[in-house]
Design a protein around this nucleic acid. Structure first.
Lengths: 355, 355
DNA sequence: AGTTAGCACTTGAACCTTTTGAGTGCTAAA
DNA sequence: TTTAGCACTCAAAAGGTTCAAGTGCTAACT
């Protein structure tokens, strides 16, 4: 009875070594691993009988399980968790990989949306798993309005948002515009609609603005709509997947039933946002699917939030089978998010050689 | 020997009726249809033996085929084609469906990109197939530049594009901005970069602009980059899918192999753009997959280009199994595209009751 | 006590055979 | 021209056998 069920408990060095070998092998092969394999290929210096004893105990402790009596062992969720937290060796990105990452970063500097997405694409290609790009945006308000008249019937409403960004909306009206009435309108917006959430726009505000505009009252309504759109759409964060078809390559998802489960999970983007908000904002998070939760079994989700000034603005992650190449994925995601936050916060461009 | 292989050839009324019943039934059930079914459920007033004879001829003529000797008949690509072109009854949208479509259209008026996408979502939900939203954009140029200073280090570059739209790009520089130097910069752009494609920007233009800017020469480079981005990204059209997971529900895609094929097709967005450019711009196009072409077998793609002033600006379509509910899909897509072009061309909003 | 060789046991996967039944094509009669 | 009837075909389902991987346990060994 040397085994106890306390997580991260007293595992002998030998048990750790065996556990790690089993998980490494399972990640690479995708099949249950038996004692014989460990002796021959993983070069554990003990007989298969000894290893079997150890494996039996690891099973009892909850780190491994058997699909059926006569099969090898497969890591449990707990097993993977322990592996990720304590056993795994960290993967060193190769020079080629670093170059690819840096090139991408360089060419995309400037636009947050696109940088997150291209990073996500790159991650999907480098890791060969499905990658996830999350842009979380909190409820923004407008800090200042300005405008630009485009032609007789269209003007551009420019809104400096409470974040660092600027939004523009094109507004069309049937009445004839001039610099004069549009700038009056914007003064009204600056008076009534600064730091205001969509719910704060009351009908009486609209009436006030309309009466203040006099003959150009018809301008108010489309402008308010544009304003509303800008504030409202800023709240819906989005989640995008890249390389979903890569999931098809992994045997664990090769039955249609499982595919359905995984796809319906991917469909449910809120779940990913939930996970993001329940996450640790300063490090890599690893969710490993287990049977009971909403999370599809034998799948895992690894991601790293992107923060600016302590606020979570999004995340980059990877979704795949739970037998994932954790160390490689973690290194890749870590590297990218580090660099991206660096760029966002205005630090120097990444140097080809630095690491 | 009454049958000939000429497409749309001399099919007796009875043959047509049988063919239509088979295709209808196959669309509904997804299984091969046998003579017995036609007698009992489709109420064809002949004995199964007679029907078998007719079916044998239809098979010889290429409209039907048998998965194996002892199975019922399944429509061939030619069969579907004939069905779509001549046999199908057109589906009447229900009142509920029309209301759903109209509501969506009303709420989204104004932004072409979003209207195409929401329309696509709606189509996916109404038809229960995967829908496709294509935004085709030809190579645009800038017709006029203007600007807006945001703060000391940032200004907004506003570009009226050769289409009807306006693009804005935020430009950041390290030197201090003022109204004066930015407006001078924009005058230069208006002089050098109007109606210019990305390839026309030569190094000498940049040098000229830089020397004209004098001490504010550092402004030129980031602004040119912003300009370049605006013209360059306007060329990459995009194809977006909605409800991909619906494919999983159809038994024809229930083997992993077939899923792989379909997904790799979906991955290849160029193919869809190709189909768009090879399409008839004024009507619904129906591509029915056959064995040999790049198109995945037993799948079909129905779409309708969106045109404004004779130019194709995108398309809305549906991708699904070749046993698709053609009439419903066609009606839905047709209705939506009609309304959308109406809106784009500035005609009245859709009335709840009109059709 | 820890390790290992050996062996009986379990069990899914692979393969083969049989059965079943849906559906056909053809012939001969109406 | 239509239809009843029947022999025939063939995939899918059901059942059975073999195979081999892998285990757990016992007894012997260090």
């Amino acid at each position: 009875m040397s085994g106890e069920l306390i997580y991260g408990g007293p595992l002998s060095e030998r048990k750790k070594r065996i556990l790690r070998s089993i998980i490494d092998a399972h990640i690479a092969l995708g099949e249950p691993i038996g004692s014989k394999y460990l002796v021959t290929s993983a070069e554990i210096p003990f007989s298969s009988a000894t290893i079997r004893n150890e494996m039996a105990e690891l099973t009892e402790m909850g780190y491994l399980e058997q699909p059926h009596t006569s099969a090898g062992r497969v890591p449990t969720q707990l097993g993977y968790r322990f592996y990720v937290d304590s056993l795994m060796e960290s993967y060193k990105l190769t020079a080629t990989e670093i170059v690819a990452l840096n090139n991408m970063l360089k060419s995309k500097i400037g636009e947050l949306d696109t940088i997150i997405q291209s990073a996500s694409k790159l991650v999907a290609n480098l890791t060969n798993y499905t990658s996830v790009a999350i842009k979380a945006s909190e409820r923004e308000t407008v800090r200042a309005f300005s405008h630009m008249v485009l032609d007789e019937h269209n003007f551009l409403m420019v809104m400096k948002m409470s974040g660092e960004n600027v939004k523009t909306k094109q507004v069309h009206t049937d009445i004839v515009l001039d610099e004069n009435n549009v700038s009056r309108l914007m003064m009204l917006f600056n008076a009534y609609c600064v730091n205001v959430t969509p719910d704060d726009i009351t009908y009486s505000t609209i009436v006030k603005m309309e009466s203040a505009m006099g003959s150009a009252a018809a301008l108010v309504s489309p402008a308010v709509k544009a304003f509303y759109d800008a504030v409202a759409t800023s709240t819906d964060s989005n989640v995008k997947f890249e390389g979903v078809n890569k999931l098809l390559e992994y045997p664990e998802f090769s039955s249609v039933d499982q595919l359905k489960r995984v796809f319906s999970m991917i469909e449910n983007k809120e779940d990913f946002l939930d996970m993001l908000s329940n996450s640790d904002r300063d490090k890599i998070n690893v969710f490993i699917g287990d049977e009971e939760k909403r999370f599809a079994s034998n799948s895992a989700f690894i991601f790293r939030p992107l923060t600016v000034d302590g606020k979570v603005i999004g995340a980059i992650g990877v979704f795949g089978p739970s037998r994932m190449d954790y160390s490689k994925v973690i290194s890749t995601v870590e590297y990218l998010t580090q660099k991206i936050t660096g760029i966002i916060e205005g630090r120097a461009l990444p140097e080809p050689g630095d690491e």
